[in-house]
């Protein structure tokens, strides 16, 4: 059952006589790269607790920028808006993606077309989608007069479908198709087999998909920036707007809060995701 590599199974801890896998210098570069990946974010987090104004020279610990962010009505509103959009969009996208994933376990004509359609947003730069949606929604807005959050939610739901689809599909693929057959063999109707066997087994994948879609929606800048109406800032577009002016550590405080939220959600996502080991 282990797909452990024969070579990897060697006790790498104990020095073998000739370290076959080692390539000199690579490990050092690797460790530095990973450190560099985290250092700026770490600095940003530290800076968010900074008592000083703008300079990086340490002047003491303080939570004042968090207080400032919390007291800022624009920030609060943008945050609530982000949550609303992310929650609605990820819910819609996850349901749609789950249904499509279930359909794809069966072979049927048009399967590949649907697969391509679903993955289309992944394959193109966001700016293109943003521009396209701006044009479409502008005309709908002109025709109907509706200017609510619906546009943002719809746009986010669309690009969240492939994101939610990924873990749902992976989970579904790890489920033995024989199980549904066994259920049918034991007198379950197709719906009962789905409801009692497939759905419970899929649940972690669906939850993982929803979380990932939520995170991606929460972090989106470009599409939100183009689709939003005036006064419809989400947290990321608000931050982007603020960056034009002098950067205060308030942005760092907001960033840190968002990082914390994202990190927690991603940890849950990883716990729920199917492990790569089971490929049989």
């Amino acid at each position: 059952m282990t797909d452990e590599h024969p070579a990897a199974a060697l006790p790498t801890g104990k020095r073998s006589i000739f370290p076959v896998k080692t390539i000199p210098g690579l490990s050092a570069v690797a460790v530095i790269s990973i450190a560099v990946l985290y250092a700026p974010v770490f600095a940003l987090v530290v800076h968010s607790f900074h008592a000083g104004d703008s300079g990086a020279l340490w002047q003491g610990f303080s939570l004042k920028w968090y207080v400032a962010a919390l007291e800022n009505r624009e920030v609060r509103e943008a945050f609530m808006r982000s949550l609303t959009v992310a929650a609605s969009a990820s819910a819609i996208a996850t349901v749609a993606a789950t249904m499509a994933a279930v359909a794809r376990t069966r072979t049927f004509p048009g399967r590949t077309a649907i697969h391509l359609l679903i993955n289309q947003p992944v394959m193109m730069p966001e700016i293109i989608m943003a521009a396209a949606l701006l044009i479409v929604f502008a005309s709908i807005k002109a025709a109907t007069g509706y200017a609510g959050l619906g546009y943002l939610i719809l746009a986010h739901a669309a690009f969240c479908v492939p994101v939610a689809y990924l873990p749902v599909r992976a989970r579904l693929e790890s489920i033995d198709l024989n199980l549904e057959m066994a259920a049918a063999d034991l007198y379950a109707t197709p719906w009962q087999a789905f409801r009692r066997i497939t759905l419970p087994l899929m649940a972690p994948g669906i939850a993982a998909g929803a979380i990932l879609a939520f995170v991606i929606s929460l972090d989106d800048v470009i599409i939100s920036e183009f689709v939003k109406a005036a006064g419809q800032d989400t947290l990321p577009t608000y931050m982007l707007g603020q960056l034009r002016q002098t950067v205060t550590p308030e942005i760092n405080a907001i960033s840190t809060a968002l990082i914390a939220l994202t990190a927690i959600l991603l940890c849950i996502f990883f716990v729920l995701s199917p492990t790569r080991e089971r490929k049989s």
Partner: peptide, 20 residues
């Protein structure tokens, strides 16, 4: 007749026990 309406049951090669 679909399998769920046949009074015939199968023991699958990999047993297909419901893991949950």
């Amino acid at each position: 007749t679909p399998p769920n309406r046949r009074p015939v049951n199968t023991v699958f090669q990999n047993h297909a026990l419901f893991p949950h």
